[in-house]
Nucleic acid binder design. Sequence first.
DNA 1: TTGTAAGCGTTATCAT
DNA 2: ATGATAACGCTTACAA
Lengths: 333, 333
Amino acid sequence: MNIYDVSKKAGVSIATVSRVLNGSPNVSERTRTLVLQVMDELGYTPNVFARGLGLGTIQTIGIMCSDSSDPYLAHAIYYLEQGLRGYGYDSILCCTGSSLKTKQKYFELLHSKKVDALILAGSKFIEMNPDDNHYIIEAAKELPVLLVNGYLEGDNIYCTLCDDRSATHHAAGKLIASGCRSILYLYTSHSYSGKNKLSGYQDALKGHGLPVREDYICQCPKNVLAARDLLMQLHQKGVFFDAVLASDDTLAVGAVKYAHAVKRSIPDDFSIIGYNNSVYAVCTDPELTSIDSRVEALCSTAITTLMGVFNGVSVPSRTNIAADLIKRATTKF
Amino acid sequence: MNIYDVSKKAGVSIATVSRVLNGSPNVSERTRTLVLQVMDELGYTPNVFARGLGLGTIQTIGIMCSDSSDPYLAHAIYYLEQGLRGYGYDSILCCTGSSLKTKQKYFELLHSKKVDALILAGSKFIEMNPDDNHYIIEAAKELPVLLVNGYLEGDNIYCTLCDDRSATHHAAGKLIASGCRSILYLYTSHSYSGKNKLSGYQDALKGHGLPVREDYICQCPKNVLAARDLLMQLHQKGVFFDAVLASDDTLAVGAVKYAHAVKRSIPDDFSIIGYNNSVYAVCTDPELTSIDSRVEALCSTAITTLMGVFNGVSVPSRTNIAADLIKRATTKF
DNA sequence: TTGTAAGCGTTATCAT
DNA sequence: ATGATAACGCTTACAA
C-alpha cells in the first residue's frame, strides 16, 4: 500500500497524489477529491520514512528531561507534548538522569535521529563549568535548542525562564515584613535556577539589613522525609529559625511535617514558603504558601518561540516570565 | 555526508560500509577497522530515514498515556522510557486525554508513524463498551500492543496488570478486621482497574457479612480538595463512616484533610487507605497506609514481554502482579 | 493542471 | 570478502 497503488487506482500519476498529500494548490478540485476518496477507500497512509528521506525532517521534536516522574517536569512534558501536537509535531522523549555523560549521550542520540529541534526541560542541563555546556552550543549550529527554565547564551539557542531570583526575593521580603528574622533556605541542587533562587533570598536579607548566614542555607535531597529530618536535626542542635523558604514544595512539605513533629505552630511561630505550587502544596494542613513558577506559560512560550524560529520570524533569544506568589496558610501575610 | 562519502574515502563500496554499519560478519577485520576509522574521521552518522525506509522499522515504541502529569503515569512513563532505551528503543510519547475520540486519533497517528509497538499506559484505554475497543484489536494485527494495567483480549495484545481486585479485597479485609464497619469507597473512574478495585471492596464486605451500600460507593474527581469536600458534605448530611478506602492516594489525602477539618482522630476513630503508594502518601500527618501497585515491576514486565514478542519467543498474553499493602499511620493494623 | 524521472541514503540481493 | 545495483516510497524539478 503505497503512493503507486493510489495513483494507479485513481488513474493519475504519483506526482499528483503527492501534491494532494501536501496540499499543493496546483491540483484541480476534481482530481483532488478523487484522489482523496481513493486514499480513503484504500486506507492509505504515507510512509513517514520515505517522506523524511525526501524532506530531511519528520515533524518531531526531541524533549529531554532529567526525570519525567518529578511533578514539575511531568507537567512540563505534558504541556510541551500537547502544545507541540497542536502544531502537528510529535515529541520524542528522553529521560536523561542527571549525569553529564548520559545527558550528552542522549543529546547526541536525539540529534542523530534528525529531530527538528531539541527542548531541554528543566534547569538541570546547564552545568556550572562552561566547558561542559559546549556540546549544546555546538549542536545548536545544526538545530534549534530550546531551554525551558535554563539559560545558556549561544546562536540558535532560545531560553524561556521563570524569574526565580525575583520570586524568592519577593517571597523572602514578605516573610521578613511579616516578622520573620531567621529564615532558613532549603534547596536541592546547584542548577542555574537554583543559583538564582538562592541569590534572591540572599539579596532580600541584605536589603533588609539582615545577616546572611551560611549555616542557614542548607542543601537537602528532594524528598519530604529528608527535609523533615534535616530540620529536626537542626532543631535538636539548637539552631533557631522562624521560617523556611524552600526551592521545592517537597521540601516545604517536609517543613510542615517537622513543625508537626516538634509541635511548632504554623504560621504563628513558624512560616513556610514552597516553590512550584504543585499538588503537594495542598496536601498538607495547613496548606502551603508557594511560589508558582508557571510551567504552563513557560512551556507555551517556548513552543511559540520555536514555531517562530521555524517560520523564520525573529524571536527573542531569552524570555523571562514573572512568578506568582500563591498565598495559603503557612505564612502570616 | 553519507554512505557514499565514507565508501569513497575508505576506498570500498557502499555495500561494505553498510555491512560494517550493521555488524555483518562478512567483512575482513582490516576493512572493518579501516571503515570505522573513516566514519570516525568524517563524523558520519547514518540517516535514520533511509534506514527506516529500507528496514521498515525505526527502533521506536509509541507510548500512550492519558495524562503524563498524573504521578502514577509519570512514573510509568519514566520506567518505560528508561527500560526501552536499555534495549536500544526510543519512545515517542502521546498524551491523549481521556476522550475516546482523541485516544483513537493518536492511536492512528502513532500507528502511521510506523512505531514498532504500542504501549498503552494506564487503565484508561479500555472502554466499557466492547465495540469501542475494536480499533485496538484491529491495529494489533499490524503491530504488538501492550497494555500496562489494562486488559483486553485479542491477538498480538499483551497485558501486564496489577491484581487490583485482590489488593482492595485484602485492604478492606484488614480494615474490617481492625474494627471498621462502615467503610466508604472512593473512586475516580470506571476503568477496567477501577471496576476490579471496586469489586474487591464489595467482595470483602460480603465475605464478612457486611452490607454493601450503594451510597458508600462514591465517585470523586481525582483531586485532593474535591475528596475532602465530598467527605465534609457526607459528614454534614449525617452519613456515618469509620473508614475510607480510596482508589488513589490523592483522594486519601483529601480524607486526611477532612478528618483534620472535623477533628476526627486518625486512626482511632477513622481509618484511611490510599492507592499507589505515591509521594502523597508521605506528605500527610499521619502518613497514609497505601496499596503499592508496583508500577516499576509492571513496566519492566511489559518491556520483557515486548522484547520476547520481538524475538519470536512465546510470551504470556497476560501477566498478573500482586500489589503490596504498605502500612503507615492511617490504619490501626 | 498533470506526468516523467531523478534524487534522498540506506538495505539486500545478486554476482564475482 | 567484496562490489554493483535494485529496491524502499516519497518529494520535487522539469517537461508537457
